[in-house]
Amino acid sequence: MKKNLLAATFLIVLLLLVKLSSAQNKIVVFQSDFGLKDGAVSAMKGVAMGVSTDLKLYDLTHEIPAYNIWEASYRLEQTVRYWPAGTVFVSVVDPGVGTARKSVVLKTKSGHYIVTPNNGTLTLIAASLGIDEIREIDEAVNRRKDSQKSYTFHGRDVYAFTAARLAAGVISFEQVGPVLPKQVVSIPFQQAVLTGKTIKGNIPVLDVQYGNVWTNIPDTLFKQLDPKVGDMVNVTISYKNKQVYTGTMPYCQTFGAVAEGKPLAYLNSLLQVSFALNMGDFAKTNNVASGGDWSVEVRLK
């Protein structure tokens, strides 16, 4: 009887440890549109270290263009999957700070956590990694002490504080706050689809350093056109359904496959169809930007 009781107790403890382990790798990754010109990012990290000096704090980026919720969504999509399960992300691009938008923690089906306003930031990650559960932050518990009079820095007072408590194991995910329906505020955009011999997609982001144009068209969909290296690709890019660019370029594996200044289609590091000028800036040259309102059509000539 005593052995059975001990075994049952051990099993319960083990299950609890397994349940908490994915939230206790002590890693917190920060993203914002704050930039690094002032002390905002440092303040968030200071709050996190005040919860536990055992935490490991990293930056995704703080150079999201001001108020650009779409790009915040994309940078999470670009990055989260490469971090260990249990990593807690803080994403603060929050033009509606202090308003009725909900502050949430989303747990993906891959076991990652994103602490953020539910304002569209979760659009892409919810679709790609899936929603295991989403909880509204209970600010009566998960808010920095004596910060109630501050309405404009939830990144410091609510998000960094809650993320640190979760990552350090001070609270469980269940203690974040009440469960919400498995849906998020989403920004509309053109999904990648094949219709006949034409693929339609979106331009989620630019390769900001070089001006290359990245699409959301995966290699698996592009391969359904049966492209061969050197085949010519017809590309049409539109903004709010108004054509901005149309042209033809070869499908290549490397930038150097075309002459300097010439366009090419290629697969980027995420294996998505992209466009570039060899040693040039495709986006600037052709007045192309990115976001939910930008769409692209691709077909082989």
Results as ranks from 00 to 15, higher is better:
Lys2Ile: 07
Lys3Cys: 08
Leu6Ile: 10
Ala8Gly: 05
Ala8Phe: 13
Phe10Cys: 05
Phe10Lys: 09
Leu15Tyr: 10
Lys19His: 14
Ser21Pro: 13
Ala23Glu: 00
Gln24Leu: 07
Lys26Ile: 09
Val28Gly: 00
Gln31Phe: 01
Asp33Arg: 04
Ser42Gln: 14
Gly50Asn: 15
Val51Cys: 07
Ser52Trp: 13
Thr53Asn: 15
Asp54Met: 08
Glu63Thr: 06
Ile64Asp: 02
Ile64Pro: 02
Ala66Arg: 13
Tyr67Glu: 11
Asn68Met: 01
Ala72Lys: 02
Ser73Thr: 10
Leu76Arg: 10
Gln78Trp: 13
Tyr82Gly: 05
Ser91Cys: 07
Val92Pro: 02
Asp94Met: 00
Pro95His: 06
Gly98Val: 02
Thr99Ile: 05
Lys107Gln: 15
His112Ile: 04
Tyr113Pro: 06
Leu122Glu: 07
Leu124Pro: 02
Ala126Asn: 08
Ala127Gln: 13
Glu133Val: 12
Asp138Met: 03
Glu139Arg: 14
Ala140Phe: 10
Lys145His: 10
Ser150Tyr: 13
Thr152Leu: 11
Ala160Asn: 00
Ala163Trp: 11
Ala163Asp: 02
Arg165Asn: 10
Leu166Phe: 08
Val170Ser: 04
Gly177Cys: 05
Val179Glu: 07
Ser186Gly: 00
Ser186Lys: 11
Ser186Trp: 02
Ile187Tyr: 08
Phe189Asp: 02
Leu194Phe: 04
Thr195Cys: 04
Lys197Ser: 14
Ile199Trp: 01
Val205Cys: 11
Asp207Trp: 09
Gln209Trp: 07
Tyr210Glu: 03
Trp214Asp: 14
Asp219Lys: 12
Asp219Gly: 13
Leu225Lys: 06
Asp226Leu: 12
Val229Ala: 12
Met232Ile: 15
Met232Thr: 13
Val235Phe: 11
Ile237Gly: 00
Lys240Ile: 10
Gln243Met: 15
Thr246Leu: 12
Ala257Gly: 00
Pro263Val: 14
Tyr266Ile: 04
Asn268Gly: 06
Ser269Lys: 14
Asn278Leu: 03
Gly280Lys: 07
Asp281Glu: 11
Asp281Lys: 13
Asp281Arg: 09
Lys284Asn: 14
Asn286Thr: 10
Ala289Glu: 15
Asp293Ser: 14
Val296Pro: 00
Val298Met: 06
Leu300Lys: 12
Leu300Asp: 12
